[in-house]
Computed example of a mutant assay.
Amino acid sequence: MAAAETIAAIVSEMKKEGGFTLPSFGTFSVKKTKARKSLSPRTGEPVKVKAGKTVRFKASPNLKKAG
């Protein structure tokens, strides 16, 4: 249950601040996406995708060295 509480706290912080940093691990940030046209993978038909938000992650130099 501790993991669920930690994730809930991170999500809350990202909603409030637009990002979250875990030292020696990396930074999560919220980015806005524009509305766009795409293709349905099932039918190949063009579809409209609404504007929204997505989460990006940038690994810290320490994490990159470890990997």
Rank of each mutant, 00 (worst) to 15 (best):
K58N: 07
S24W: 11
F25D: 07
A9D: 05
E17F: 13
L22T: 04
V47P: 01
G19H: 10
L39C: 09
T27C: 03
A8C: 01
E5I: 02
K34H: 07
K58R: 13
S40R: 13
S24N: 15
K53S: 12
K65L: 02
A35Q: 10
T33E: 10
V11F: 04
G67P: 00
A2C: 02
K15F: 09
P41Q: 07
M1G: 11
V47N: 10
E13P: 00
R56P: 00
L63I: 05
G52Y: 08
E5C: 05
S60L: 05
I7M: 12
E5A: 13
I10Q: 05
A4Y: 06
K34S: 10
K37H: 07
K15Y: 07
N62D: 13
T54P: 00
V30P: 00
R36N: 12
R42Q: 15
G19Y: 06
E45A: 14
T6S: 15
T27D: 01
K32I: 05
G19M: 02
A66K: 14
E17R: 13
G18E: 06
R56F: 11
L63D: 01
M1L: 02
A2I: 10
R42N: 14
P61S: 08
V47K: 14
E13S: 15
E13N: 12
R56Q: 13
F20E: 03
K37P: 00
F28V: 09
K50L: 11
F28E: 08
G67I: 12
A51Y: 07
E5Q: 11
A59D: 02
N62P: 00
A66Q: 12
F25H: 11
T33S: 10
K65P: 02
V55P: 03
S38P: 05
K58H: 01
K65S: 06
A4L: 09
S29W: 06
G19K: 14
F20C: 05
A3Q: 15
K53P: 00
A35R: 11
I10E: 06
E45W: 04
V30H: 02
S24M: 12
K15L: 04
P46F: 05
K58D: 02
R56N: 13
A9Y: 03
S29I: 10
K65H: 05
A35T: 04
K48V: 14
A59F: 04
K58Y: 01
K58S: 07
K64W: 01
F20T: 07
G18D: 12
A8G: 03
I10H: 04
L39E: 10
G67S: 06
R56T: 15
G18L: 09
G67M: 13
K65I: 00
G26Y: 06
G26H: 06
N62M: 05
S40T: 13
S24T: 13
A59I: 07
G18M: 11
L22G: 07
K34L: 07
V30R: 02
K31D: 12
L39M: 15
A51F: 09
